[in-house]
Structures are given as C-alpha cells and as structure tokens.
Nucleic acid binder design. Structure first.
Lengths: 160, 160
DNA sequence: ACTATATAGTTTGACATCAAACCAAAGGAG
DNA sequence: CTCCTTTGGTTTGATGTCAAACTATATAGT
C-alpha cells in the first residue's frame, strides 16, 4: 500500500501512463478531425479509406492481394473485402484471381481509378496547402520517426 | 510546366504536403491500432468512446452538457446523444435537465459509473504498463506539444 | 498419400459515426 | 410583442469497421 507510493519507479510509471494516455488522446482527436475533413472534401461520396487504398497502390504499385492491403492499413480482412468491393463497383479497381495461389486475388488500378485519384488529390490540395503553409512542417517531420516507432511497436504487439 | 519544377517554393510545398500526408497516415494507423486494442480490453462490451467520456468527466468534473462533451471529443452532437444514452442505459451516468437553459441537459456520473471507470482503468493498466515500459516515453512527451498544436490548428480551421 | 493445420477471403451481426433534416427553447431586432 | 436567427438536442439513413463464424485452398507432418 504505502510501498506503491514510495516506490519511485511505480510513481514514474503512473506518470508515464498519463502521458501515454494524453498522447493517444491527441492522436485520436487529430485523426477524427482530419478524417472528417477528408471525407467531406472527397468527391462522389467516396470515403477516406477508399482514397487511401488507391493512394497506396499509386505510390507503391498495384497488383497486391486484399490481405496485403488490409495489413498496410491495419484493418481486418472483412473490412478490406468491403472496401475493395466498393472500389470495384465504382470501377476504380479490377480484381483478378491470383494464378499463383487459388485462394487469393490481386487488385489492380483501372484508368478510372487513376483519374479519380488525381481528382481527389486535386480536391484535397487546397486543404493540404493551407496546412503546409500554416503549420510548421519541420516539426511534423521531426515527429514522424517517433510516430513510426510507436506504430511499429503497436504493430508488433497487436495481440497485447 | 517547367516552371512548376523550377519554382523552389512550389517544390517545397509539394514536399511539405507529402510529409503532412505521411504524418496523418501514421496518426491514422496508430489510432486504429490503439482503438482496437482498447476496445478489445474494455469490459462488458463497452467501447472506447464510452470510456473516454467517463474518463473526461472523472478528470475534469461532471455536470457538463452533451454538446460540451461532443466538442471535447470532436464528434457530432448526434454521436454524443447516442454515446450518452448508452452510458445512461448502463447506469453509468445520469442526465438531468438544465435549470438554467430549457434546451439543454447536464450529464452526471453515477457511483456505478465511477466504479466502472475504475475497473476499466484496471483492465487497461497491463497494456499501458507494457507501453510505458517498452516505449521511450520521453519521446512521446517531446512530441505532445506538436500534436497539441496540430490539433489546435485543425480545431480552429474545422470548416476547412 | 492423408489428415491436420494454416491462410485468403467472404459473410454476418452489431455498433459507432457522420451528415443532414428536424424540433424546441432562447435571444435579438424591429 | 412578434418574427427571425441561433443554439442544444434528437432522429434518420447510410456507411465503415470490428470480431467471429464460415468456406475453400494450400502446406506440413506423419
């Protein structure tokens, strides 16, 4: 009982927890604000999750499996099934069987998908411009490695 | 065409945008991972949003209006209506009319709510302990002001 | 070769959240 | 006092996401 209060490590731990909590709290709210902004600005009622998948494939190449995409965004397989099928319905991606593995599929960008991605970027640009102008981006860059580290840690310990 | 490439400011802006994008990407994934972890660990099928509201009231005092809560967490009024009514159904909060304003209500913690909050903290502690032990929390603390700044900016410019 | 386990994807049911439309009380302008 | 606008809250309809159960293919152990 008293030991808990006297143990300096215990106290430090408690304080650490508080900071960790604050950190995640800020992260959560930023995510909420940015997600909503993006969603409001994206054309044709598309959701940021759809855009993210297209963006990922544009940047890193298409022809990936749905599972690889799910992993990249840390969503469940079921969620990615849903996302991909929506993109497919809109004609932004094409899903083909994977010749190398009968269980899996491969997702490819279509021309329509690339066009849409460009127009989405277009409609996000004003917002990103303002952000890039009014926020000290150097600070963000400094912060990035820490975020990556945290992400990596959480990723490794996902069963925690 | 060539101008775009030669203009140093234009290029810097593009690079900045990329970083901003990366930043939000990391934030989004961290949020997803942490949210899922919390949700899995919270008792009685409660969601992190419910816990957050209780936690907020424990830390900063209860007797707030639903709208104030919605603002604090950057969710819509409708969402907060839903969250509060769930908490009410569970008996964790009590909603009373606001004598000072016939339109609004006030949300108070119940004993059950406080008890639940304690047990929720309990079930989150192991996870936070590991985090606090294995992540360099000093780095998180350094990062916090930047996150707050970004949050503040987004908050101010919510109509962007 | 045969069975068991692991993996890719889908489906299901529940739920949080959003935007927008809506209702009711408050405050102001005339 | 009366209308108009603002503000707190609810409702509605759609959608994204999760966890868990399920199907089908692939891989491994014996």
């Amino acid at each position: 009982m008293a030991a808990r209060c006297k143990d300096p490590k215990g106290l430090a731990l408690k304080e650490k927890q508080k900071r960790v909590f604050q950190f995640f709290n800020e992260v959560g709210i930023i995510q909420q604000l940015v997600g909503n902004m993006f969603n409001r600005r994206l054309p044709e009622g598309l959701h940021v999750s759809h855009f993210s998948v297209l963006n990922h494939m544009i940047r890193l190449g298409d022809g990936r499996t749905p599972l690889a995409l799910a992993d990249a965004f840390q969503v469940t397989k079921g969620t990615m099934t849903h996302t991909v099928s929506t993109l497919e319905k809109r004609g932004f991606v094409e899903v083909r069987p994977n010749a190398a593995d009968g269980r899996s599929k491969l997702v490819f960008l279509t021309d329509a998908g690339r066009t849409f991605h460009a127009s989405a970027i277009e409609s996000l640009t004003p917002m990103l411009d303002i952000l890039g102008r009014e926020i000290d981006v150097d600070k963000l860059i400094e912060v990035l490695p820490v975020l990556k580290e945290v992400r990596q840690f959480l990723d490794d310990r996902r069963d925690m």
